[in-house]
Amino acid sequence: MVDLSADIGIPLKNPLILTSGILGSSAHLLKRVASSGAGALITKSITEDPRVGHENPTVIEVSEGLILNAMGLPNPGVDIFLNELETLEAVNLPIIPSVAGYSEDEFGRVASRLEDAGFRIIELNISCPHSTALSSKKVIAQDIDKTRRVVNAVRSVTSLKLIVKLSPNVTDIVEFADVAIKAGADALSLINTIEALEVDPYVEAPVLGNVFGGQSGPSIRCIAQRKLTDIALAMWKGEIERVPLIGVGGVRTPKDVFRFLLLGADAVGIGSSILYEDLAIFEDVIEGLEQIMTDKGYDMLDEFRGKVISQILDMTI
């Protein structure tokens, strides 16, 4: 029996995490996902006040593995969210609230509420590419100064463990990783969705209700792997501080999880691929990962985690 335990600043029984934005909106659904085998759950992003989100179509499948969404951060607001979670019977895995906001103060206030409610760790969603209506403007995670200010603001008002979710829609993601860590991030998750748009050639119109959206699904896995690698390489080289990394983007199979771990991820997010595999994905991936490790003679994740990063370091100057 292999040991799948992982650590992202808090211990996990296995490295699989339900990513933010997928199914994590109600206590009842979280409870279901909790029993599906995941190591931790990240909720839908919570803002201070309720948000209805964007008009439909909010999620479209462009082709197999290529999904666009512009949900627009629909959520009931932090008060109702906390009431909802009170109804959740104790689950035996960490629930990580995702926090979004429109100012550093809002991030700080929501984070404080969550800390007061007993949470130990949150994710800061500073990188949703379509959170304001019809906005093609830059989000927090595309602006170095805003990234620093938001993470700083939350750090200064809470002692929660902070995961900062980074955007792939930047020239140099390592620069953003460095700023987030220096401002107080305890871990990084990446990538959020990739800025995207679809237009229908028959009706000659954009398809998403919000026009602009973010791409997810297996089609973005190699991009996520590249961004993860950029940050891991900088960490391995000692150019930036080493903190736990949660690799997110297009993960669907046990091999995908194994790939992200080889590239230095401490844990791996699963999100859009639930469209194809449904909730069975967690148990199936765990079983497959155990099989891969058994076949290769690995007993625990640390025996191969980051192995390919070390290899790339040797190959590059």
Partner: peptide, 8 residues
């Protein structure tokens, strides 16, 4: 919203 079982 999504009609695909992923948004909840």
């Amino acid at each position: 919203k999504c009609g695909m079982g992923i948004c909840g």
